[in-house]
Design a protein around this nucleic acid. Sequence first.
RNA 1: GCCGGUGUGGCGGAAUGGCAGACGCAGCAGACUCAAAAUCUGCCGGGGGCAACCUCGUGCCGGUUCAAGUCCGGCCACCGGCACCA
Length: 845
Amino acid sequence: MNREYSPKDIEKKWQDIWDNEKAFQVRIDKSKPKYYALVEFPYPSGQGLHVGHPRPYTAMDIVSRKRRMQGYNVLFPMGWDAFGLPTENYAIQNKIHPKIVTKNNVARFKEQLKSLGYSFDWSKEINTTDENYYKWTQWIFLQLFKKGLAYKSEMPINFCTSCKVGLANEEVVNGVCERCGSEVIRKMQSQWMLKITEYADKLIDGLNEVDYIEKVKISQKNWIGRSEGAEVNFKLKDKDEILTVYTTRPDTLFGATYMVISPEHPLIEKYKADIANYDEVAGYREQASKKSDFERTELAKDKTGVCLKGISAINPVNNKEIPVWVSDYVLMSYGTGAIMAVPAHDTRDWDFAKKFGLPIIEVVAGGDVQNEAFTDVATGTLCNSDFLDGLEVSDAKAAITKWLEEKGIGHKKINFKLRDWVFSRQRYWGEPIPIVKCPCCGYVPLDESALPLRLPEVDSYMPTDTGESPLAAMRDWVETTCPKCGGKAERETDTMPQWAGSSWYFLRYIDPDNKDAFASKEAIDYWMPVDWYNGGMEHTTLHLLYSRFWHKFLYDQGLVSCSEPYKKRTSHGMILGLNPHSFVNQTAEEQKRLIAEYGSEKEARKALVEKYGEMAEHPIVKMSKSLGNVINPDDVVNDYGADTMRTYEMFIGAFDVSAAWSMEGVKGCRRFLDRVWKLQDMLVDGDTYRAEFETKMHQTIKKVSNDFEELKFNTAIAAMMALVNEFFKANSVTRAEYATLLLLLNPVAPHMTEELWKINFAGKGRVYQQKWPEFDEAKTIEANVEIAVQINGKVKATLVVGLDEEVESVKEKAHEIKAIADLMAGKTVVKEIYVKGRILNIVVK
RNA sequence: GCCGGUGUGGCGGAAUGGCAGACGCAGCAGACUCAAAAUCUGCCGGGGGCAACCUCGUGCCGGUUCAAGUCCGGCCACCGGCACCA
């Protein structure tokens, strides 16, 4: 009898052994195929590790460990995305330097991650707030600046009227300040911008060469929002002026009954004198500018606007005079800031036309345009459109575009929803932007030798009431000399957004201590691209887009050797908690009691909603302190062990779907590991698989190997559980069988399997040094199989046949079964379908 | 409104168009125990039948097929994201 399974006694021990043996440290080794596995590095928040963190980490740890056993040189690094708001806010509240807060949080996170036994190469640890790291973030910014991809622009920021502080989007909740609940307005501020729009096409096209899960590709494409249409010039009546619009529906040009320009459109000021109701228009513009983003969206359905009296336009296709309106449903930031309105075939124009009594002219037949806009482009033919009449929409688009180009009044045009990236934050805890503003030379970049531009010590991290960064108050830091002319100049006081550090971190892991470059050419050529990158769905648009943009830029500068940073991208689901207030999460007794108390389940549910609010209807919710359903990973590791934690995180459900935590489920996984431990007491000699286990062994190796590659960890573990159950039934396991089981299980439960290996297979080294088990396809197939015999598609009997048995023999045997014979009595066989090794379906009449 | 996802036992969830419910949890029964826990073994979708067995069953309605959770068409509900992008 071997000793009890006690994770506490073995887990720390193995973690130390791996550290001492430098088991997972890698260096460039051209004799082996490389494999770069990447997980999103965490933001080290004050709350410590959440049970959601280990899900992707364990998954990629499994992949990494398996790859090593398969002979790959695996890089699996970890670091800290440590600049950010929560740290800064915590620092403000507690008057502790964010550097210290970060240091403490990182220490805690690291200890927690270490306790889970991940095979990270800690020698490559990075931290975005280290000056040796952000030196290179700043360096890349300078390259962008030098190539004209970083520029300054007036942009609105969120500004809290009470705190008098600029807010990040995530600090604005339902249009009010997250902290004080006061109104948030938009305030214009000069901001650094990155010209990501220049890479819009490349970012779409690049998706064709990478292996991302489909929904990630779709969301990237949607975010970039490429649309094809045309720009059309409208003449203003009695003026030498052209108003250009962008439209995706040039085919509906004959239905344009008015035009709309954005409140910010320069036309208003230019023709101020001609606009009879200028005061009204200016008032409307004023009102629109005050509207917060929240109001703009909330009031989306209710259209507002003012007609420009004294100004009108000419529709170029029929020379009809049409009015020009101003409305905030037209955005200055998309297209030309002006539209032609076709109320019959655009929902927004239709709403506006109905409200202001503007004419609606049908130009695509097929709908009922007086009652509803007809926007279907797949059906319908053109009407009331002169030379376009009778054409399908797509043909009409081509015809009118050609016509416009011939007449010189319009041309084909592609537009993107993607906007340039607002790269400034009026905050302290971020990378300083290495730019100096000189009264003579304008914006001047620091010399590369001046990097890193360190964050200075300040007295207060609180943003200023002008909306500027706290750095602005540091006069002796701000006041500097111009690198170009040597005259007096001021430093940029904005810092970079949190996205900056994470836009290139995978490049630093491969050569983290390099002093001369962000990474050496040799390291880049060997390790890049990332072979498999897993992360959360919440980062599939922005982070992925931003980092691909930076990488493509570096590629264009010849600084990296591949145009896409990530070969493969997958996503994991969130870990949620059970809502303790929800009816369905009550125990059976409690449910009965509630039904008795309130008369019916419906009434009981209603009562719970009254008591706990709408949330009570949702059985699965985000973990929150107020609900008391937060699970602390440390507790799970303490009570059940890291291996159980890892196993459960993988067994909880399909990897890409959200799952609710269950402590009962954790216990089940611990029981499974206990059984694996106990198997050593059933160990019998045998260097091979026993005949009766051979198929099962090969099947399990195949299943586990394939499932680990496809992120189907739950079914891989289920297969191992089933195998263990078989050994228990036999009350024995051979050494060969047990060894294979331990190797298969090692990526999931590395500590326990190393310990069992050491106890039972002494002298054979570590599990992490072993080869991954192989299977023989031929041996995964059973010689004899049980098939189902159906009559008219319904299973009536089962039958054991040889896999390669002749069809006639199978049929013969089936007809001999009494139940089948009885059912067929007096019927004629229409046909019989035999699917090899699966089913025999006899169709009778 | 648009995009994406999900819907299967009491619960988490399995099922290349081929025996729905693998594996786990909870539950029930038995073994062990003075007893309980732990452990081991068995049962475990609903309805009917003493039983062999019959019958219904994968959100709803229709279709394709010898055969549909799976494919096609039309809905419904919930979740996530985007949201006046012309």
